[in-house]
Amino acid sequence: MKLSMLVEILEALFLCGEDLSDIEIDKAGASDLMSDILAALSERSVLLTGLTTIQAVKTAVISGVTAIVFVRNKKPEPDVVALAEMHGIPLLSTPCSMFVSCGRLFDAGLTGLKGIR
């Protein structure tokens, strides 16, 4: 699905990268543990996390994550947004919890990181 569709499903707001709303997402992963993200996430995937530190964005850059969604209305500091912008990673914030976000995206057809549903 396009990132714009994901925004609609999660009632999310762009914190940066709105110009990339046409990029395609196939997979989703949810974690607050950076090593889990490094072990599993890859291209065309979205990371759902409650972690708003600068390392969340760096981990996304390293692992090739396409976009990050911060759950429960969390928003990172401006320097974190600036780093994501520099690396072309859209950041979103959703009022949904991690559980509800995952449920909605699963229902909409996204797979887990290994293509499993």
């Binding site: 490094l38 072990a39 981990t59």
Partner: peptide, 15 residues
């Protein structure tokens, strides 16, 4: 609290 300490660093490197 910063998302580290899962005990996966060295195993991820080895993998």
């Amino acid at each position: 609290e910063m998302g580290f300490g899962a005990g996966m660093g060295l195993p991820n490197m080895d993998k």
